[in-house]
Amino acid sequence: MAVYEHAYSPYTGPLTPRWSRFAIIPRHAIRDVFRSKLLMVVFAVSFVYPLVAAILIYLHHNANALSILELPIKELLPIDTAFFRNYVWTQAKFGFLITLFVGPTLISGDLANNGLPLYLARPFTRLEYVAGKLTVVAALLSAVTWIPGLLLIGLQSYLEGGSWLAHHLPIVLGVFAGSWMWILVLSMLSLAVSAFVKWAMAARAALFGIMIVPSALAAVINQLFQTRWGSIVDPNSCLYSILVALFGSDARVDIPAAAAFVSIVLLLTVCAGALALKIKAYEVIR
């Protein structure tokens, strides 16, 4: 129907498959996300560390460059498990910054504008809605965590040659699974906060608090009771323990990885419960 023919006519074309519809939300949302210049800056800065890491890997394998620099880079910064573990840890922090910008507004906007009935009155489930919103955060965080991480591993493997990759498989697992643990925790936390706090700034403050306050609380508990188990309430410590275990390294951690994993699963369950509670077309006032 041409636009000048203002008559009601039905759509008779084909439809997209059901399974692909959750991707509609991130496609529209990511377009809007980059309207924020500040986020653009943070997002761009997030690639500085991977770039520096790539340069370091290159320098490690370039004798001429090393001789010109006259720096013992190979000894100072060896390309090993700790190198990639630090990479994931640093990028996760940048991921947290990006989440602070993007996450808290994802659901709060729909709640404030009563948008949920519009989504859920269509052939679109609550699960697809949450999956769509989660994909927005996950896509942005993937771009600064495991994707460049795997590229770095690829570069190192290519330059080192031989069987480097075969001998360092835990690094691949650590970068990929460790990044995804962070992505999942940050995405779910930010969505849960967004579902409860309608004002974007308050939601950002709440998300910041949720990540920072437990660290302080854990430190107080550890100090008071002369233990390390207080860190189980701190998502940062738990994620670090899991990351160290995934990389198979022997770095010092406060709590065992298994306990940390249980703590993180519990946190994710609480977030999922909070979302199930709030993501409804209408609240029923009993």
Partner: peptide
Amino acid sequence: AGVGYMPERDAFVA
């Protein structure tokens, strides 16, 4: 899939 709904209250996507 076959239903269109116009809610009573203001309802939009921000």
